[in-house]
Design a protein around this nucleic acid. Structure first.
Lengths: 184, 184
DNA sequence: CAGTGCATGTAACAAGTTACATGATTCC
DNA sequence: GGAATCATGTAACTTGTTACATGCACTG
């Protein structure tokens, strides 16, 4: 993958909000970015280690008698500068591989009913996502002052809109395929 | 990346349409799937080689005096069965990493003007794409009989709709950020 | 006392991009 | 004659996932 990884900036961004452990970062990502970003522990822990080596973060081992061992990472001035520099850098667009679309594209090699099943399954998933996002949205709007959650809400709106668009396209496509089925 | 690669099916699908060279496959992908799929030669050529090993395809070396050396691959019965089997398999959904959204999410660590610049640049790209898709669409609709291009048109509609959605979200977001800017 | 959640980490592997290497042909 | 296109391919490298390994604390 030879294109430079942005994982480090996703992780660094969370450290810029407050000091965190690797485990916490993973949870945060799961609860806020999951519709457009994800990281595995296999990325997070080695990245945090490198942050300390490069002085992008400091680590404090929190290990008093009562709590379990924790490594709390905090961003350094250098880390903040790196984050800011990345934020200014031009963003390369990226084409994801969408397997469902690939199957639709090669749809003439299978029954329409097979495609319709795939589409219906995907529709259910997207409806589920919609619920989740709406729930997050109402929580955000209640709990936070307008400005605090501004950027979260903006990206959440992307997720919501995308899910709605997907559902729409899926339904339209199912109808097209069914129409065609009846004609034959 | 430990999740099974679908590259082989993208390539196999094209061979199912007609016998092709690796170079041709790359061109086809570029001209038809590029808004949701892409392959590099570094994937295509080794994959074709494996197809021959596994009997998913045959190869004929076309090398008469006038033309350059070409390897034309044709799908076998086994290959067709593999394609059909994949088409029936359940599709795993996949979360792409969208760097632009990541930047917006961490927007409080930079000036809104920086985000707006990124968004405007992205808007231009999407408008450009829209043009390209519309052009492809009109070509498809003119040249082909309704049914021939049915699946291409369906996936193209996805690309068109997505581009429109993106533009919409970008414009909405720019307005939100500008509003906020004026208030401060 | 079992299950879930908190918490850290590594090794093996798969996938995919880029850069390189080569060279003929066709078009302007 | 030079640029673009046709045409094939490999090696080095980065990235990222999964599976494994470990073990404490809290809750029911």
């Amino acid at each position: 993958m030879a294109t430079e990884s942005k994982s480090k900036y996703a992780i660094l961004g969370f450290l810029a909000m407050k000091p965190m452990t690797g485990y916490e970062i993973k949870n945060y990502i799961e609860n806020s970015l999951k519709y457009f970003w994800h990281e595995s522990y296999g990325q997070i822990y080695p990245t945090l280690k490198k942050f300390v080596e490069n002085n992008w973060a400091n680590v404090v081992i929190d290990c008093d008698a009562t709590t379990r061992m924790k490594k709390v990472y905090s961003i350094t001035r250098t880390g903040i500068k790196e984050l800011e520099s990345w934020l200014k850098q031009e963003t390369a667009s990226f084409v994801p591989r969408i397997e469902l679309l690939l199957k639709v594209y090669f749809g003439k090699f299978c029954d329409n009913s097979v495609l319709i099943e795939h589409l219906e399954r995907e529709r259910e998933k997207e409806l589920e996502l919609l619920k989740v996002y709406n729930h997050i949205k109402s929580t955000l709007e209640k709990k936070c002052h307008c400005d605090e959650a501004k950027y979260s809400l903006i990206t959440l709106d992307y997720g919501l809109g995308l899910a709605r668009f997907n559902i729409n396209w899926i339904e339209k496509t199912i109808n097209k395929l069914k129409e065609n089925h009846e004609k034959n």
